[in-house]
Design a protein around this nucleic acid. Structure first.
Lengths: 372, 372
DNA sequence: CCCCCGCGTGATACCGGTATCAGGTCCCGA
DNA sequence: TCGGGACCTGATACCGGTATCACGCGGGGG
C-alpha cells in the first residue's frame, strides 16, 4: 500500500525525488551539514515545504547516537514538589533542545530499576533521578546506565554509594534552623512528624539513626538536623516525639494526636513534609487546640495556602524549580562535553517566618516543658 | 575504537556471535517472534545474559513503526492540576507498556505547535493534549498530526473545531451547581473570579460571552454555568462582578478587593481556579472581612489545605487522576485498533460541602442584596 | 594542449533492529 | 533408493536518517 507511506509523512528520498536531486543532497540541505549550492538548496527546500517534510528523529538518533532526550525518574509526578522540580528540568532542557521522558517510581526500588531500563532502551542521552537507593547493593541499575555511557545526575536525594553530581537542598540545615526557631521561642517538647516506614518504632537515638540511614536520604538529613538543634540546646531526645511509619495524612493525625495527649505533651510540632502539616492541623483541631498559642508549628514545603491560613504558617520553602533547573543544567553541561564534577550542589532553602510560632504558654495544672 | 561499542551496550549481532548462531536466530529469540529450537534459544539467552544485552528501542521503532511512547501536551507541568492529570496518564500508559514525553506550553499556542512538531518528529504513537486552540485557524498542527496517522485525544479542554475524542469534566454544571448553592443560601451579589486575558473589560453579557468563546474552553463553560445559575434565579448579571484578565494571585487580590469595596458589594465569591481562592482569601483579610459570614466562598480545585482551613472551605473537586487515566485509556484503545468514538467523555466533578457558605448578613447601614 | 586539482554531487555503507525468504537437513513414504 | 515436504536456520532487504567517499566536470598552470 503506497498510501501508507503518505500516512507517516514524506522521507528524505521522496523530497529528493520531488526536487530532482540525489538523496544525499537533500539530506545535506535538510540536515544542515555539508555543502549544497544555493540553487539546489532552494529546490530541496521548496520540495520539503511542499511535501510537508519533517525529519524522523528516531532515524537521526540511530545514526548519530544522540536522541536529544533526557530521562527523569521521580517518586511521584503528581506530587507538587516533583511537579515543580520537573518544571525546572523541563524548562531548561527544552531551552537547549532536549525533551523529557518522565517516570514515577512511587518510592519503589523495583520500579526505579525498571524505569532505568526503559530509559536505557530508549537511548536517552542522560538521566536525572531522585533515587530511593541507599546501599551499595541498590545502585546496580544506575551503575549500568553509566557503564553504557549514559551520564546520571542525582536530584533531591544524594546517594553516598554513588560518586555522582547531585543537586540537593540543605535539608539538615533547614531542619536545624526550624527547630532552633522553635527552641528560641522557648519550646522544649518538640514533636517531629518524620515518617520513614520502619519495622518498629525505634526506642533509642541510636536505633533511630540506624533507621534513618536505611531510608530516604532527605529524611535522614532532616532527622539529623532535628537532633542537631536539640543537642545544641541540651534538650534530651525523646523517641515518643518522633513519628515513624508511612507519612499518610491519616497517620499523621493519629500520631500527632498521640503526642498531644502525652502527659508531658508537645508544645511545638515540626513537619517534614506538606502532608505532615495538614495532618497536624487536623490533629490540633481534633484536640480542640489552636496555634500558635497551644502549639507552635513549622513545616516543610511552602505553598500559597500556607500564607492564607489564619494565622499564616511559618514554612520552609524549597527552591523546587531551581532544583530541577540546576540538575538539568549540570547534566546538559556533561552532555556538552564538560567533565562531571561529581560533587554535591547544595541549594539553599528559605525559612519563611509568618505567625505559627509563639512561646509556649504554661497552662493551669501542667507545665508544658522543662524550661525554667 | 571498538571500546566505543562496549559503551553503548552489545547489539544483536554481538550476541549472535557470542552464541555462535546467525543474527536472525538471535533476533528471533530476543525479539520473541518466529521459531527457534530450545537448544539454540538457550544458547542465545545465555549469551545475551552474559553480555548484558538490552534491545535498542529506537532501532526497533525504526522497523516496526511503533515507538510505544505517548506525547502529552499540557499548559504547565508544575501546576498541581496537570501534575495530577499527568499521573493518571502516566500510570495507565505504563501499565500498558507505554512511556510518556511531556511538554508544557504555558498556554501559548506557538509553544503548542512546537510541542506537536517535536512529538511528530519523535514519532510518538499518540498524543494527549490540553489544547489552547479555539477556532478553525488554530488547529492546523493537530490536524497535521492526525494526517500523519498519529491519533490525538483532547483532555481537560474540548476544541469544537476538531471532531475528536475529548475527556473533560462537567465544567458548566459544576459552576452552575456552585453558584446555585450560593443563591440558595440567599446570595444575589456573587462575584466570579474568572480571568481570561481579554483586551478590555467586557461591559455587557454579550461581550462577555464573546470574550469567553475567544478563550480557554474550560473558562467559557464555567462562565456559562455561572450565568445559567443567575438566569434561573432571575438575578441580573452585573459585569462589575466578574474578574477578567490574567489570573495571577496578585490580580485576584486587587480585583476581589474592588468587588468588596463596591457600594453594593459582593456577599459571595466563586473562584474558577486554585489561585483564585487563595487570592480571594487574601483580599478578604485585607478588607478585614471573614468568611462565611461576611462573604461566602466556593472555589475550584480542592486540596488538602482547603479542608484544614478554619472554617474549612467548600470546594469543587475535579477527578484529576481519572481525567488523565481516561484520556490515556481512550488513546491506547485507539492504538489497539478501536475505532475512535470522536465523542466527549464527560467526567463528574464533586462539590464538597464544607463550611465556607452561609447566608448573607445584612449589616447596619446597608443591604447586601436585593433579597427580600 | 594536457594534466591535475578542487569543487559539487550522488552513490553507498553504516546505525540495530524486524521480517521475509531461500536453502539445508532430515525424515518419511512410495 | 529416491523424491517430497516439513522444519529450522541464516542471509538479506528493509526502516530513514548521517557521513564518507568516489566520480565527473571545469578551470588553471605547466
Amino acid at each position: 500500500m503506497p498510501t501508507d507511506r503518505g500516512q507517516a509523512g514524506p522521507t528524505i528520498s521522496e523530497v529528493a525525488a520531488e526536487a530532482g536531486v540525489g538523496r544525499a543532497t537533500a539530506a545535506r540541505t535538510l540536515g544542515g551539514y555539508g555543502y549544497v549550492s544555493p540553487e539546489l538548496r532552494a529546490r530541496v527546500l521548496a520540495a520539503a515545504e511542499k511535501l510537508g517534510y519533517r525529519a524522523n528523529a528516531l532515524a537521526r538518533s540511530m545514526s548519530t547516537g544522540v536522541s536529544h532526550t533526557l530521562g527523569v525518574i521521580v517518586a511521584d509526578i503528581g506530587n507538587p514538589f516533583f511537579a515543580g522540580l520537573l518544571r525546572g528540568v523541563s524548562d531548561t532542557s527544552r531551552a537547549r533542545g532536549f525533551d523529557v521522558i518522565v517516570l514515577s517510581t512511587y518510592e519503589n526500588l523495583q520500579e526505579e530499576v525498571a524505569a532505568t531500563n526503559v530509559l536505557i532502551d530508549k537511548r536517552v542521552d542522560g538521566v536525572i533521578v531522585a533515587s530511593a537507593a541507599l546501599g551499595r547493593d541498590q545502585v546496580a541499575h544506575l551503575k549500568a546506565a553509566i557503564d553504557r555511557g549514559i551520564p546520571v545526575v542525582l536530584v533531591d536525594r544524594a546517594v553516598s554509594a554513588l560518586d555522582l553530581d547531585s543537586v540537593v537542598i540543605d535539608n539538615r540545615d533547614a531542619a536545624r534552623e526550624a527547630v532552633e526557631v522553635l527552641i528560641a521561642a522557648g519550646h522544649r517538647r518538640i514533636g517531629f512528624v518524620w515518617g520513614p516506614p520502619v519495622a518498629e518504632a525505634p526506642a533509642t537515638r541510636r536505633e533511630l539513626l540506624t533507621a534513618a540511614s536505611r531510608n530516604l536520604w532527605t529524611d535522614g538529613e532532616r532527622l539529623r538536623g532535628y537532633l542537631d538543634a536539640l543537642d545544641d540546646a541540651h534538650i534530651p531526645f525523646d523517641p515518643q516525639l518522633v513519628m515513624v511509619g508511612p507519612k499518610t495524612e491519616e497517620r499523621v493525625v493519629t500520631e500527632v494526636g498521640r503526642m498531644l495527649a502525652l502527659p508531658d505533651r508537645v508544645t511545638a510540632v515540626f513537619c517534614s513534609e506538606t502532608d505532615g502539616m495538614t495532618g497536624s492541623l487536623r490533629a490540633l483541631r481534633k484536640a480542640g487546640l489552636s496555634y500558635p498559642d497551644d502549639v507552635a508549628l513549622i513545616g516543610f514545603d511552602d505553598s500559597a495556602w500556607a500564607a492564607v491560613m489564619e494565622p499564616p504558617l511559618t514554612m520552609i520553602a524549597q527552591p523546587v524549580h531551581e532544583l530541577g533547573a540546576k540538575a538539568a543544567q549540570v547534566l546538559l553541561d556533561i552532555l556538552g562535553g564538560a567533565e562531571p564534577a561529581r560533587e554535591m550542589h547544595t541549594l539553599r532553602s528559605r525559612l519563611i517566618h509568618r505567625s505559627s510560632v509563639a512561646p509556649p504558654v504554661f497552662r493551669d495544672g501542667g507545665v508544658s516543658g522543662r524550661a525554667g
